[in-house]
Design a protein around this nucleic acid. Structure first.
Length: 115
DNA sequence: GGGGTGACGCGTC
DNA sequence: CGACGCGCCACCC
């Protein structure tokens, strides 16, 4: 009954803190393989529930939004990001400022320590 | 089982 | 900055 790859991706996305973003590559790396980045993008493209899984918080390695954002396109994605206080300029977000590294999060640390 | 698709990432020009 | 090329992968025919 192992969860499908897509579901694992959604789980990670649901843990992204409010006001922060992450990238396809970082999620892939967290799931065990940096080359999964492309598959992560595909998984989000198939996201069945935009409310439950805030995929608008996932960007590419350069902090750029997705032209093919499923729930309304790039503009809608920008609006959702801004609604969390995240700045979007020229279709891009400053990862140094808003980026979240899942593998270094307190949540992960706690989990590894057996919390 | 074989082949196409795509919200990727990185190097190169 | 933009345009390719290439490697890789899960999904879906």
């Amino acid at each position: 009954m192992d969860r499908s790859f897509d579901e694992k991706v959604y789980e990670v996305v649901r843990r992204i803190p409010r006001g922060r973003v992450t990238t396809y590559g970082q999620i892939g790396a967290l799931l065990g393989d940096r080359f999964l980045a492309r598959a992560v993008g595909n998984a989000l493209h198939r996201n069945p529930d935009g409310e439950k899984t805030p995929c608008y918080k996932v960007l590419n390695s350069r902090g750029e939004l997705a032209k093919a954002f499923v729930f309304g396109g790039e503009e809608e994605q920008a609006r959702r990001l801004r609604s969390e206080g995240i700045e979007v300029r020229n279709g891009r977000v400053d990862l140094a400022k808003y980026g979240w590294r899942p593998e270094a999060s307190a949540y992960e640390l706690e989990k590894r320590l057996g919390g």
